[in-house]
Computed example of a mutant assay.
Amino acid sequence: MNQLIEKSIACPYCGETIDILIEPFDLDQQYIEDCQVCCKPINFLISEDVDGELLINVYSDDEAF
């Protein structure tokens, strides 16, 4: 059963906290989703730490991965 996980992130552009839904099978995936506040494209990189917790890294278009 795949269950969506809700996480809060800070937009790298406007700094607003937004809630996003992550699917657990998105691990090691990179994708772009627009900020719900300023509408700028946020680059997401989903990974997992050593304890199995989901890590969500967000970047603006001009930041390096």
Rank of each mutant, 00 (worst) to 15 (best):
D61M: 12
E48H: 04
D61V: 13
D19S: 03
A10G: 07
P24L: 07
I20H: 02
E63Q: 12
D26S: 14
P12H: 05
D19M: 00
V58H: 04
S60E: 02
C11V: 08
M1F: 08
D49W: 04
S8N: 15
L45F: 14
P12G: 04
I32K: 10
I5K: 11
D62S: 07
I18Y: 00
S47L: 02
C38H: 09
D26Q: 15
K7E: 03
C38A: 07
S47K: 05
G52Q: 03
Q3T: 14
F25K: 12
E48S: 12
I9F: 02
I18Q: 04
A10E: 15
A64Q: 11
Q36W: 08
P41T: 10
D34E: 15
E48V: 07
D34P: 03
G52Y: 04
Y13E: 01
L4V: 13
S8V: 13
D28C: 08
V50G: 09
L27I: 15
F25N: 14
K7Q: 08
E33N: 08
L27D: 11
I46N: 01
V37P: 04
S8L: 11
I20E: 00
P41F: 10
L27P: 00
E33I: 11
C14K: 09
I18S: 00
F65P: 08
E33F: 08
D34L: 12
L55D: 05
E6T: 14
Q30S: 15
D51L: 10
C14I: 09
C38E: 10
K40I: 04
P24I: 05
C11G: 05
Y59S: 05
L55Q: 14
D19A: 01
L21G: 03
N43D: 06
N2K: 14
P41D: 07
G15L: 08
F25G: 09
P41I: 06
I56C: 14
A10Q: 15
D26P: 01
Y59Q: 02
I9N: 01
P24Y: 05
I20W: 01
Y13P: 02
K7P: 01
D62V: 04
P24C: 05
D49Y: 05
D34Q: 13
V58Y: 05
P24M: 05
P12Y: 07
Y59K: 10
C14S: 10
C38Y: 09
Y13I: 01
L21M: 07
E16R: 06
A10K: 14
N2A: 13
S60W: 03
E6W: 06
N57G: 00
N43G: 02
V58C: 09
K40A: 06
E48C: 12
D34H: 13
E48K: 11
D61S: 11
P41V: 08
E33R: 11
A64V: 11
F44A: 04
L55E: 13
D28G: 05
L27H: 09
I42D: 06
V50Y: 07
N2M: 15
C11W: 07
F65K: 09
C39G: 00
E53S: 10
A64E: 15
E33C: 04
S8T: 13
I5P: 04
I46A: 02
I18M: 02
N57P: 00
D26L: 11
